Amino acid sequence: MLASAYDFHLFDLDGTLVDAEWAYTRGVFDRVGNRLGRRFSDDQARILWHGLTGSRNETLRSWGIDPDAFWDAFHAEEDPRVRAESTYLHPDAERVLAAVEGPTGLVTHCQEFLTGPVLDALDLHDHFDTVVCCTESTGWKPDPTPLELAMDDLDVGPDRARGYYAGDGEGDVGAAWNAGLDAVHVERLGHAERGRCVLGDHRVESFDPLL
Rank of each mutant, 00 (worst) to 15 (best):
P80T: 11
D72M: 12
F29Q: 03
G27F: 00
G33P: 00
A73I: 07
D79H: 10
S62D: 13
N34Y: 14
G27S: 09
F29G: 05
Q44P: 04
F74T: 14
S41L: 13
E21Q: 12
R56E: 05
G64N: 08
G54A: 09
W22P: 01
A73H: 05
H75F: 15
P80H: 05
D42M: 10
S55H: 07
E21G: 15
D66Q: 01
P67L: 08
G33S: 11
R38C: 12
R35H: 14
D66S: 04
T53N: 06
V28A: 14
P67F: 13
Q44H: 12
L52E: 15
P80M: 13
R39I: 13
A20Y: 12
S41C: 07
G64V: 08
A45D: 08
A73L: 12
E21L: 08
W71S: 07
D30M: 13
L52Q: 02
A69K: 07
F70N: 00
G54N: 10
F74E: 01
S62L: 10
G64L: 12
A76W: 02
G27V: 09
W71E: 01
D43C: 01
E58S: 06
F29S: 05
V18D: 09
R46C: 15
I47E: 11
G51A: 11
D79E: 11
R31N: 08
Y24A: 06
D19L: 10
R31M: 05
D66R: 04
G64D: 13
I65T: 14
A73Y: 04
A20I: 00
V28F: 06
R35S: 15
T16W: 01
Q44M: 06
A69F: 13
H75Y: 08
F40D: 03
S55D: 10
L36W: 03
H75D: 04
A20F: 09
W63R: 14
V32D: 00
D42F: 15
E58R: 07
D30C: 05
G51D: 07
L52C: 12
S55L: 04
F70A: 10
D79W: 12
W63P: 09
R56V: 02
W49P: 01
I65F: 15
Y24I: 02
L48H: 09
R31D: 04
I47N: 02
D79I: 10
G37D: 09
E58C: 00
R26Y: 05
E58P: 01
P80V: 11
A20S: 14
N34C: 15
A23E: 15
E78Y: 10
S62I: 12
A73V: 10
D79R: 14
D42R: 07
G51S: 08
D72V: 12
E77A: 12
D30E: 14
G64Y: 10
R56S: 09
E21P: 11
A45Q: 03
D43F: 12
A69E: 03
F70C: 08
R31P: 03
R56W: 04
G27Y: 05
T16H: 00
Y24Q: 01
L17P: 06
